[in-house]
Amino acid sequence: MEDKYVGIMLMSGVDDGLLLTFDDDAGSQNGDAWTLSIGRKEDNDVCLRNDTYSSRYHAKIHWRGESWWLEDCESKNGTFIEDSVDDQRVTGTIPLSDGQLFRVGRTWMRIQPVD
């Protein structure tokens, strides 16, 4: 159960530096996966109301098999993983490591453990 406590830190924009924390009351359980949703609409777990480049339901992160996965929900402006040369657009679901920067619309964020 402890594994489900997670923080998402926003890394750009007006909320740069804001740490959002989630326990198992948040998100949704789908079979063996625990899922948090990211998007511009109010009913997302991570609500990016100030990012006009994010879609209403933009992306999801899943906790499954002891690791994190990032899924792009066919968003208009894309979900990206930071790369040393060019940021890589996410298609489908890809593995995500702790601390790895990713971008939803214009908003950069990362997963980080919560004490």
Binding site: G13, V14, D15, D16, G17, L18, N50
Partner: peptide, 11 residues
């Protein structure tokens, strides 16, 4: 989308 020029949490 908001009034004023708020500081970000990191600022």
């Amino acid at each position: 989308l908001w009034a004023g020029v708020p500081d970000t949490p990191r600022t």
